[in-house]
Computed example of a mutant assay.
Amino acid sequence: MKDKISVHVADDHKILIEGLIAVIKTEENLEVSGYSLTGKQVIDWFETKGNHADILILDITMPELDGFEVLKHFQRKRSNQKVIMLSSYDDIKIVDETIKLGAYGYISKGNAGEHIVKAIKRVASGRLYYSDDIQSLLLKRMTGAKIPVGDAPEDFLFEKLSDREKEVLRLVTLEYSTSEIADSLSVSHHTVETYRRKMLKKLNVKSSVGLAMYAVKFKVV
C-alpha cells in the first residue's frame, strides 16, 4: 500500500491552519505532519531530526521570517522541499518571486478550500499547481495581455527597489529637484527621470508625494 502524503501547514492565523487541517484530513491518502505559526518555526521544524513532510503549505506574511525567507532557506540548503504558497496576495510580481525561489504552487486564500487537496496531490507527483485566478494572471502575461495590479505587501515592493533607486527616493523626499539629484549622484537628468519612472511603476504610486510617503514609512530619511 502506498504511503500517505504528509503535509506541514504554516500560517500565522491558527483558525486558518485548523480549517486547512480539517480539509486535509478528509482525504485518506493525506496526513498532517505538524504546523507552524512563524517562518522561524517552519525552519526549526524541518531542521529537527526526524521531522519530514512531503508538502509544505506556506503563507507569505508571517512573523520572524516571511515566506520568501523560508523559500530562500530551502534554496540555500539545496533542498528539494515541495512548497505550495497560500497567500491573500495576487500580484504577479509576488507569484514570480515565489516561482524564482522554487515554489511548486501558488493558491489564493480565497480559493484554498476548492484547490488545496488537488494542489497537494499534483505537487506531490512533481508537477506545478496554481489556483484559477493565478493561472489567469500567468496566461495573460504569456499572451501579452494587460495584467491588472494586484495586492502585494508594501514592504515587498519597497525591497524590490535597487540601492540607487532608494538613494533617489531619499533625495526626492528631501525635496531635491531633478537637477540637484543628478548633480548629487553624478548622473544625467535623463537617468534621474528614468529612476523616478521605474519607482512610480514598482510602487504603484502616481507622484512624488506617493514616493515620499513610502520613504517616510520605511525610514529612508
Rank of each mutant, 00 (worst) to 15 (best):
E114S: 03
E154D: 14
D155Q: 13
L128H: 13
F156R: 12
D133Y: 05
R122W: 02
E159S: 15
I120V: 09
L139D: 13
A152W: 00
K118I: 04
I120F: 03
Y130N: 00
I120P: 02
I107A: 02
I120T: 04
S125D: 12
D133C: 10
T143Q: 14
D132L: 03
I134E: 01
T143S: 10
F156I: 06
P148C: 08
S108C: 13
I107D: 04
L138N: 10
G110P: 04
A124D: 04
R141E: 15
I120N: 09
S131P: 09
V149T: 15
K140V: 03
E154V: 05
A124V: 01
M142G: 03
V123A: 04
S136R: 09
L139R: 15
K118W: 06
A124L: 04
S131R: 01
R127G: 07
L139M: 12
I107S: 00
I134L: 13
G113F: 09
A145R: 15
P148G: 03
M142A: 09
K146T: 15
N111E: 15
A145H: 14
A124C: 02
K146L: 14
L138D: 06
T143C: 06
Q135P: 05
L157N: 08
K118S: 11
E114H: 09
D151Y: 07
I116A: 01
E159K: 14
A145D: 15
K140S: 10
E114F: 03
I107T: 04
I147R: 07
K109Q: 09
L138Y: 06
A119T: 05
D155E: 15
G126C: 01
F158P: 12
Y129T: 01
F158C: 11
K121C: 00
E154F: 05
E159T: 13
I147Y: 02
I134T: 01
I107F: 05
K121T: 02
D155G: 01
